[in-house]
Simulated assay, not measured.
Amino acid sequence: MSSRTDSGLDVHNPAAAYGFDASYRGSPPNWDIGRPQRAFVHLAEAGRIGSRVIEVGCGTGELSLFLARRGHEVLGVDVAPSAIERARAKARWRRIPAQFLAWDALRLDDLGVRADTVVDSAMLHCLGPAERERAVEAIRRTLRPGGRYYLLCDARADGAAATWASLSRAEIRELFGPDDGWSLSFVFDTGFERRGSRSPAFLVGARRRE
Score class of each variant (00 low, 15 high):
S7E: 12
L203N: 07
A165C: 14
R107D: 07
R95S: 15
A105E: 07
P28V: 02
R194D: 07
A102F: 13
T142V: 04
G146Q: 04
L152G: 04
L127P: 04
A122T: 13
L184W: 06
A206K: 00
A98C: 03
R69M: 01
G181F: 00
N30K: 15
R92F: 08
E137A: 06
G205F: 00
G8F: 12
R92K: 13
A83S: 15
N13T: 15
R156V: 09
T5Y: 08
A22V: 03
G159R: 03
E171A: 14
P36I: 06
A105L: 12
V77W: 14
E45C: 10
Y149W: 05
R208G: 00
G47D: 06
D21E: 15
R48E: 15
R208L: 00
R198H: 05
G57I: 00
H42Q: 14
A105D: 04
E45V: 08
V119I: 14
L43A: 07
L203P: 11
D109E: 14
G34C: 10
A44W: 11
F176Y: 08
I84G: 01
G147D: 10
Y18F: 11
D116N: 15
V118Q: 06
G147C: 09
A83D: 11
G61F: 07
L63A: 01
P14T: 11
L101M: 15
A87S: 13
S199R: 15
G205D: 03
